[in-house]
């Protein structure tokens, strides 16, 4: 049965104010069923206040073969991280 169902990526917002995060994926026939399935699979232990479902085929992903040209040039450029500033104690979630 689920061989015929497309794959959906599930994003859950665990608390108001936080962003939706990728929780996993599941099979469903359409977006309504994907929402209900996501509710049962990912939020039954009180994990969420909001769910987004996106058909996996609608996501364009980078190709791991291109990791060299995409990501490696950034590896020796530590100065692009703002790590050389002193952070006041009051600032959280940085």
């Amino acid at each position: 049965m689920d061989n015929n169902w497309p794959l959906w990526e599930i994003f859950v917002r665990s608390k108001n104010g936080l962003e939706h995060r990728h929780f996993g994926s599941l099979h469903a026939a359409d977006e309504e069923m994907a929402l209900e399935n996501a509710r049962d699979v990912y939020t039954r232990r009180n994990e969420g206040v909001s769910i987004w479902v996106v058909k996996s085929s609608n996501i364009t992903a980078s190709n791991p073969e291109n990791n060299g040209e995409l990501f490696e040039p950034a590896q020796d450029k530590v100065y692009r991280h703002p790590t050389f500033y002193k952070l006041p104690d009051d600032v959280k979630h940085m």
Binding site: M1, D2, W5, L26, H27, A28, E36, N37, D40, V41, R44
Partner: peptide, 12 residues
């Protein structure tokens, strides 16, 4: 259940 998702839903 006929699929993992419906199985969990039914058991819920």
């Amino acid at each position: 259940g006929p699929s993992l998702e419906t199985d969990i839903a039914g058991t819920n």
